[in-house]
Design a protein around this nucleic acid. Structure first.
Length: 425
RNA sequence: GGAGGAGUGGCAGAGCGGUUGAAUGCACCGGUCUUGAAAACCGGCAUACCGAGAGGUAUCGGGGGUUCGAAUCCCUCCUCCUCCGCCA
């Protein structure tokens, strides 16, 4: 959620930002509507405050008159207060309504894109900021990962369907061990890069989901346990970032670097076709997430650092990758700037998104109320960033496809200490 | 799931219907003193909103109510603690 102050002080920047996100003139009106509502809110508060202040003073007088035994005078004032009270009540009702409306509108405004974000409508307009320098090797007669998984009995999609439904893969044997090896490898890498490991709850309450922006924007994407009003997390970002909800940290606490492995649950309604085959798009997948809470002056440097970090992992895994800067049409609701990593899947001849690294600036911290005391003692909103490092399922798909050969599938060297085997055959 | 107790500032802990946004202690920050430090003393020290400012309003777990007036009384929800039951 953008801050009111930002919107009021940067009306034209806000509108330009929304244009990058392909808002038309009608859509842009939301900004003006917010300003008008806020004016209403201010006027209301001024009036209400004055009325309450008067009531307070009169109430004190009543107290004093009672003490001195002057009942008549006290009762006189009581009538006055009763009148004031009626007025305050209706003002208060107005305030509730105005605030609710304002909040709804604010929640519907996405983050303002960073100046680097190119305009564009879809993922086809994303800007390639780093291409794979070598020619891509297409494996002739290569099998897609779902067939490899079947051939080597790594993933039993049918069993997953029976147990839960489509989109819930069941890993077994070397497939399960490869999955676990990757999780441990990623966590060790993050540890070495200075991230503190977190094992968070996998179910979160609605306050938590709201604070990181999943509610109300992505309500339909999350599994919801209605009976207890809890949501299954779509990413570790949600519980991990919420550790710092309603927290004021000191400037010396920066940088806060957290990592966590969790399964991620996504309903992903509405997708179809070959994109959803195998591990490309599933309801449950494993992911190691990295989260940083950064000083606003340093957050873009931190973003770079996180991009470099993700890149270093892909290099170690020896997978061909490219880095994209998301365009306005593809940029997530809460993000100001996002870099996507895609890995080339040789058998599908397709780039698969395996990581997304974003700076949310104050968009999340405003709702989180995550602040730090600056040198002058004032509270300021911190910046949050996160990235997948990495999303497991698609990495597995890429490893299987890219490393297949006549003798089986070769495990990247860096993983062998974790898998304890070098070849799947 | 059943019975009881409790939720107050960074922490500890008063207040239980009337200048109480909240005593006191600790912690923290600034100053005096000191060669320096400690001690002692003086001052500061919650958050949000409105206001150019003076200042005002709200907040004592959340929400609602009683009252001229609520941290204090009532209702409800949440959380924590103790005991019992169940259980990995």
């Amino acid at each position: 959620m953008l801050t009111l102050k930002y919107i009021r002080d940067h009306i034209s920047e806000a509108k330009n930002g929304l244009r990058i996100r392909n808002y038309n003139d009608d859509g842009l009106q939301i900004i003006d509507e917010i300003v008008v509502l806020d004016d209403k809110r201010k006027a209301n508060q001024t009036e209400l405050d004055a009325s309450l202040a008067e009531m307070k003073i009169l109430s004190k007088e009543i107290g004093n008159y009672y003490k001195s035994g002057n009942k008549e005078k006290a009762d006189n004032i009581k009538e006055k207060v009763a009148l004031l009270k009626e007025g305050s009540k209706s003002l208060e009702q107005d305030r509730h309504m105005i605030e609710q409306e304002l909040e709804d509108k604010l929640l519907s405004v996405p983050n303002i894109p960073h100046a680097l974000v190119p305009s564009g409508n879809s993922d086809e307009d994303n800007e390639e900021v780093q291409a794979w320098p070598k020619p891509l090797e297409v494996i002739k007669d290569g099998l897609p990962h779902w067939e490899l998984a079947k051939k080597y009995n790594l993933i039993d999609f049918d069993a997953g369907v029976k147990i839960a439904g489509s989109g819930f893969p069941l890993f077994r044997g070397k497939g399960a061990r490869l999955e676990r090896a990757l999780i441990n490898f990623f966590l060790d890498e993050a540890f070495n890069a200075g991230y503190e490991e977190i094992i968070p709850p996998l179910l979160v309450n609605s306050d938590t989901a709201k604070a990181t922006g999943q509610l109300p924007d992505k309500e339909g994407q999350m599994y919801h346990c209605e009976r207890d009003d809890l949501y299954l997390i779509p990413t570790a970002e949600v519980p991990v970032t919420n550790i710092y909800r309603n927290v004021i940290i000191s400037e010396s606490d920066f940088p806060i670097k957290l990592t966590g492995y969790t399964p991620c649950f996504r309903r992903e309604a509405g997708s179809y076709g070959s994109d959803v085959k195998g591990l490309n798009r599933v309801h449950q997948f494993d992911k190691v997430e990295i989260v940083q809470i950064a000083h606003p002056d340093r957050s873009y440097q931190v973003l770079k650092e996180m991009v470099n970090y993700v890149e270093s992992i892909l290099i170690k895994l020896e997978l061909p990758y490219r880095i994209l800067r998301l365009c306005g049409g593809d940029l997530g609701f809460t993000s100001a700037l996002t870099y996507d990593f895609e890995v080339y899947s040789a058998a599908q001849d397709k780039w698969l998104e395996v990581s997304s690294v974003s700076n949310f600036e104050t968009f999340q911290t405003n709702r989180l109320k995550l602040r730090y005391k600056d040198t002058s003692g004032k509270n300021q909103l911190a910046h949050t960033l996160n990235g997948s490092a990495l999303a497991l399922a698609r990495i597995v798909a890429a490893i299987l496809e890219n490393n297949q050969g006549p003798n089986g599938i070769n495990i990247p060297e860096v993983l062998v200490p974790y898998t304890k085997f070098e070849l799947i055959n």
